[in-house]
Write a protein that binds this DNA or RNA. Sequence first.
DNA 1: CTGAAAGCGCTTACAG
DNA 2: CTGAAAGCGCTTACAG
Lengths: 353, 353
Amino acid sequence: MKKDKEMIGVKEIARRANVSIATVDRVIHNRTGVSVKTRRKINELIQELDYQPNILASRLASRKTIHVAILLPAVSDETNFWEAPLRGIRRAEAEIKQYGVVVRPYFFDLNDKESFRQQARAILEQEVHGVLLSPSFVEESSAFIQECKQRALPYVFIDSTIPKQDNLCYIGPHLFQSGYLSAQLLTYGLPNSTDKVLVVNISREVDNFNYPQIEEGFRSFFKETNRANPIVRIDIRQTAYPSVQDELTRALHQHPDVAAWFVTNSRVASVARFLEGKGMADKFLIGYDYLPENIRYLKKGTIDFLICHKPEEQGYRGVMALYQTLVLSAGVEKEYFMPIDIITRSNYAFYRN
Amino acid sequence: MKKDKEMIGVKEIARRANVSIATVDRVIHNRTGVSVKTRRKINELIQELDYQPNILASRLASRKTIHVAILLPAVSDETNFWEAPLRGIRRAEAEIKQYGVVVRPYFFDLNDKESFRQQARAILEQEVHGVLLSPSFVEESSAFIQECKQRALPYVFIDSTIPKQDNLCYIGPHLFQSGYLSAQLLTYGLPNSTDKVLVVNISREVDNFNYPQIEEGFRSFFKETNRANPIVRIDIRQTAYPSVQDELTRALHQHPDVAAWFVTNSRVASVARFLEGKGMADKFLIGYDYLPENIRYLKKGTIDFLICHKPEEQGYRGVMALYQTLVLSAGVEKEYFMPIDIITRSNYAFYRN
DNA sequence: CTGAAAGCGCTTACAG
DNA sequence: CTGAAAGCGCTTACAG
């Protein structure tokens, strides 16, 4: 039960370089106070011997705590979507807290941009070494990010992104392809090429980067496969059910011949409820996210497919990406696209967010 | 950047119990040579202070290596399915080798039970603390497992299982539900309730636990949803393509009106090839596993859906389960069912095994 | 620019 | 049955 290979460590490098281990440590961490000559020699030895630092020993000896701030929408009556990323974040925290990483969450109200600004400010007032955020509000996020950049704080986007922001990485869905897949699945509910499709977007946010990309992918599928099905799109800006009901009633009045429904986000349960009320539960309906409400309708068959992008894993990977850079000084992928998972009433029980 | 809470450790417990840390260590690891009284006192303190051992320090101080043996089918010309679990195993190894865990793979030939026996013997001749295996051959696996049990070696099953074997855990698919889902998807290719379904089982193994369960789930779906579609099943015992072609030709001759095809394992590419040859690429075809051959046909549309059970993650989780018990002394779930993933040409690019 | 020494929280012979 | 001491591979003041 003895260790097979004696790994070489700082001690061995120090011996070979005729210096003390403290000097080796300085070189390893790019600290000042080492002559060019010595530094070069030690770096050569590190290369030559393929030195791998022992993270256990490193974290054990270093009494430092690394603080990671999390900036996410609060769970609300309207949606508990953000519970899942938070679970992933907690799981990551549990795994790496033994390495001296502390995770501190800050929540903002999705209906209140000011709350975002406040929480962002609160983060910067604390000691912080990295940030994980959902850039829900574009302008506010950009402002916050500028500040992070100045302080050389790495920041990670999850679930949605803002292009070209020097973020450490983006972890979330490939929205275009997600829409494309939804369209593919929807066609199973469209036996005839003249069957009409209704795309429903229920969201308060207007300047959202997400929906246009989903819709583009969605329409692309129809174009590429030469399907001529008419696609009608409606926007519902009030998310409470009565408003949704009103708008859907109006839409249905205008387009009584809709054969399949596609909801571009997790509000699909509202549409399911509406369809049930109209005795139209058999209509083909696709939407997003593994939420209790949605699963209820999926089980009953009112919702046919749910698309899901592993929100829990997004949270988990987001924290781990920061851990990779801050603790392990390792590189991370700039864009980590989540799988586009298909959930039906037959496989939902085994789904892992 | 200071550590927030001073965690309590062996030193503190020793101080409070008026003993040395060596004695505390003995109690923590249930070693002999401690008076009942002292042991009780220390255990009380551990409870009271909610002592959590520092794994970093523990693994650093302990110069021991833990050996995990892996017993899996070798990758062959016929199937490279087992590459994926091996990748997962390697990934787990990379993650935990810093904790002094060494993983040693042993491969057997799926066409040769004797090779399984040989490799099993080889494992037991080495120093080994835990085993991960795919119990492909029932009798041979049972014999091997008996030996493991006697030595109190924990063993984990992946991908398939043998019931009631005191295995540490099973990590793999819920086959019944997987067949059920396949049936649900297949019905999108069965517009009429009289459309005929062909279930194709291509496998050399006769006494396999897997296929009956898949088929049972498959038929259950039809029963539960009151679908009367005729289901025909054929078994092909020679896996080389010419034999498959012969058998399928014969089947097609007998059942020229088959509307949808379901292949119960990863050999679906053979059927896709056959259908293309017959100019029947448009037939609805579902099979298993994310293999390059299969993906090729999926992209072209010859295969409509692939079902996949994350083989890479099975390998990863299998090793981690052993790590959990052997290093962390933590519990693991007895049955960890993998998600039942649906892959189409629209989402395969983002799939993670 | 460099090194000696203490310490991180454990484990492990060894001595009694 | 118990303890003192060395050591795991690093980091961190501190001294020079």
